[in-house]
Design a protein around this nucleic acid. Structure first.
Ligand code: MN
Ligand code: MN
Ligand code: MN
Ligand code: MN
Lengths: 219, 219
DNA sequence: TTATTTTGTTAGATGACACTAACAATATAC
DNA sequence: GTATATTGTTAGTGTCATCTAACAAAATAA
């Protein structure tokens, strides 16, 4: 069966909210999608009747296995697209999310399989997030938040948890990218900001909001 | 202003019908799009109110200059996409139309400009049709129909007027492609079929329906 | 020139997806 | 444990793009 662009966006949103927050309710979803709650409720009933979502009034939302798979396959198309745009078309990692948000709804398995092949079957997208396989299987390697690290830690930047243009441009401006190796020189108790050094940068300050969205491997 | 996918498809259809048939009426459009006439009438009123189509009840349909430009820019996106799929992604010319039909509606000028650049600003798509420029300007070089040629003519295949998978597979099966140089050995008066030779093929028969859809340059 | 066929319009309905207003249930604060 | 705030549902509307049924105009044939 094929699903509408709208349905795909709802399913993807539920998957991503449940990955980051655990529970998902109508209100979260409503805010995340900028769609009013009554509309969300109506769509949940529809997706429930299609057996994509477990929905009971006033209870938290859950994807069924079927719904999880559909959502993961949309995520696959999104992340393959972002990778293709960066690796094969020369876009910056800060430019690709909005385009991928549209292309993820193209209906053509050959198109995405060709991307996959041309990219050499990548495991991660340009922001360090895992690309689900053809069956919707996704392996999330558990990384640490930069904001949870301590003074003196040496860490490698492995993923970013926000793909907005503004956030990624900030990282570009500071010369930070996936693979950057940082040393934490100080953690400010007052505002949670960190002073770090990496490559040619001997002392850069990152605010807590920024550190919260950066994932690292401690090395 | 931005136009819906549906509106874009109507505008493109009017442009392409007026290029091939001269006049366009509600009935043609209805058949071309497989959409019932009352729906087409309603959309013509809407596009008229947006000043994209000149519409008066019972009169033939005409694009305004504004409508022509919008339509041509959709055609540009379609043809750039087809070219990109063939040249950069390794698809066959028979596989790309349906994918391009979807991707032509992606909203991102940078995406299509990047394609254009990576392709080296091509003038023609994989089927020999001209790619409109950024302003919607399209130059149609006037080619002859193969079916209008005479016995003894030597011609170069320059374009195909149908991009259905079945038609292009037939050409693939006969080893015909853009650039093939054919010699017309016979024209059958009975059914309009032609016997031609080219490359390693000393004698192939092409039916009139096929010859009608092939454009050539006489050399 | 009248009859028939083809083409086009109007009217009314539907499904998908959004909204606001009003009310109801659940969670939190006092 | 009641009061308040938050979250969620129901009911009723609206827009977009589609449809069918019925009728009307224009083109074609007899
Ligand atoms: Mn993204
Ligand atoms: Mn999307
Ligand atoms: Mn095409
Ligand atoms: Mn299209």
């Amino acid at each position: 069966m094929v699903h509408s662009l709208t349905e795909e966006n709802y399913l993807k949103a539920i998957l991503s909210l449940s990955n980051e927050n655990g529970q998902v309710n109508v209100n979260h979803l409503s805010k995340h999608l900028s769609i009013k709650m009554p509309t969300v409720t109506a769509m949940m009933k529809k997706l429930h009747s299609k057996k994509l979502v477990q929905y009971e009034a006033y209870k938290p939302l859950k994807l069924t296995d079927k719904g999880k798979k559909v959502a993961a396959l949309v995520v696959r198309k999104h992340r393959l697209t972002e990778m293709f745009l960066v690796e094969k078309m020369g876009f910056g990692w800060e430019e690709v999310h909005d385009i991928a948000e549209q292309i993820e709804h193209i209906q053509s398995t050959e198109f995405f399989n060709k991307m996959d092949e041309l990219l050499g079957f990548p495991k991660l997208d340009p922001h360090g997030s895992p690309i689900p396989d053809k069956h919707g299987k996704m392996v999330w390697k558990e990384y640490a938040k930069l904001s949870d690290c301590k003074k003196g830690d040496r860490v490698k930047l492995t993923a970013v948890i926000n793909t907005s243009e503004d956030f990624l441009k900030l990282l570009n401006n500071k010369g930070l990218h996936l693979g950057s190796v940082l040393t934490i020189k100080a953690v400010e108790a007052f505002d949670g900001s960190m002073v770090v050094s990496y490559e040619k940068h001997t002392s850069e300050t990152l605010s807590q909001v920024v550190c919260d969205r950066i994932r690292v491997e401690i090395i």
